[in-house]
């Protein structure tokens, strides 16, 4: 039974199409991820599903209620964590949660217990009586998440739940999201542009770009689509003719030249190619001897298991654009992945 059924959902703003005929469904108890760069239309999709925005066309049902015609019924079934802070800064942290609990009709014992519990998860227990205007950005974010986790709705929307959080808090939030999903059978849609997050948490992932779903499957199957391992080669010399000569091998599944931006991001020279092969570790010597025979010099070799990042790169032809503040972190993720690979 599909808890969420979306058909051709579209939103245009003054001629700009933010969400373009998106169709997908989510089963009960599933943890579904929308993965894509900023501006791909993820937030707009969630805003429509949570009744904050009216769709321009298409339809969607949430637990059997139409998001356009039965908004009150939809609201009773959902919870939402917003990407930007939606807190009252003139209230304390605890008062913000109390406000939420009462708006959602929780009784007093339930309210107190749950508030303590979620404050514990986001480690704000000692700051609960401080006005939110005195919170740091990270604290606001954590409070926001605590609030979304507090009432246990049938369907929960999480818009970039761990954006800008440190690794430790992120782990806590992930664990809590999983617990909510598994133990309470809450169906969850989350948006993220962290590959690691989508990979770790989601049962299924839809890669979104320019308002459209590019591809959708389980993280494992998506990675399998690339077939085997990913090898990056940095070469000195005429890279195009080298690529030409590699094309004759049928064990090379895909072959691609990195664009400048990706090279800079990976910290490699611009003369780099990326290929996917099965049993990559066995193929590296073959590649190197081939290069030597043709008088190319290999500057660096890197082998890793395909990640969602590679999948994204493969299907959209680009990396997920990162905003300044989390660039370092992604680089760290990359390093870690390279070391694992």
């Amino acid at each position: 039974m599909d808890t969420i059924a979306i058909k051709d959902l579209t939103k245009t703003f003054n001629g700009f199409t933010a969400v373009d005929h998106i169709t997908f469904s989510v089963e009960e108890g599933e943890l579904f991820g929308l993965l894509g760069p900023n501006g791909a239309g993820k937030t707009t999709t969630l805003n429509m599903l949570s009744t904050l925005l009216k769709p321009s066309s298409g339809k969607a049902d949430i637990a059997g209620a139409d998001i356009y015609k039965e908004r009150d019924a939809v609201r009773r079934k959902i919870g939402m964590v917003f990407q930007e802070p939606a807190l009252d800064t003139k209230l304390t942290g605890r008062e913000n949660l109390e406000f939420h609990a009462m708006m959602y009709g929780m009784n007093k014992e339930e309210r107190i217990g749950r508030i303590d519990e979620v404050l514990e998860v986001v480690e704000l227990r000692d700051k609960e009586n401080i006005l939110v205007e005195n919170y740091s950005g990270g604290m606001k974010r954590r409070l926001e998440i605590a609030r979304g986790l507090m009432h246990r709705p049938k369907v929960l929307f999480l818009d970039e739940p761990t954006l800008g959080l440190d690794a430790q808090t992120r782990r806590h939030i992930w664990e809590y999201i999983q617990r909510l999903n598994k133990e309470n059978n809450v169906t969850i849609i989350l948006t993220t542009h962290y590959m690691e997050e989508a990979d770790y948490l989601c049962d299924r992932v839809a890669i979104v770009d320019h308002g459209r779903i590019v591809i959708m499957d389980t993280p494992d199957r998506l990675k399998d689509l690339l077939g085997g391992d990913v090898i990056s080669l940095e070469v000195e010399g005429d890279i195009d003719s080298f690529m030409e000569s590699l094309k004759k091998h049928d064990w090379i599944k895909t072959l691609k030249k990195y664009d400048t931006e990706t090279c800079q991001h990976l910290g490699i020279g611009e003369n780099s190619i990326c290929l996917t092969v099965e049993k990559g570790d066995k193929r590296i010597p073959e590649l190197i001897s081939e290069a030597q025979n043709m008088d190319y010099k290999i500057v660096s070799v890197n082998l890793h298991k395909p990640s969602l990042e590679d999948v994204f790169l493969h299907f959209t032809g680009k990396r997920i654009r990162e905003t300044g503040d989390n660039k370092n972190e992604t680089r760290r993720d990359m390093m870690r992945r390279r070391m694992q690979g």
Binding site: T51, L52, R75, M80, L87, M103
Partner: peptide
């Protein structure tokens, strides 16, 4: 402007 309206509007309240 401060985003709090979203919190109010998404609540299951008439």
């Amino acid at each position: 402007e401060f985003g709090f309206l979203k919190e109010i509007m998404v609540a299951p309240v008439k």
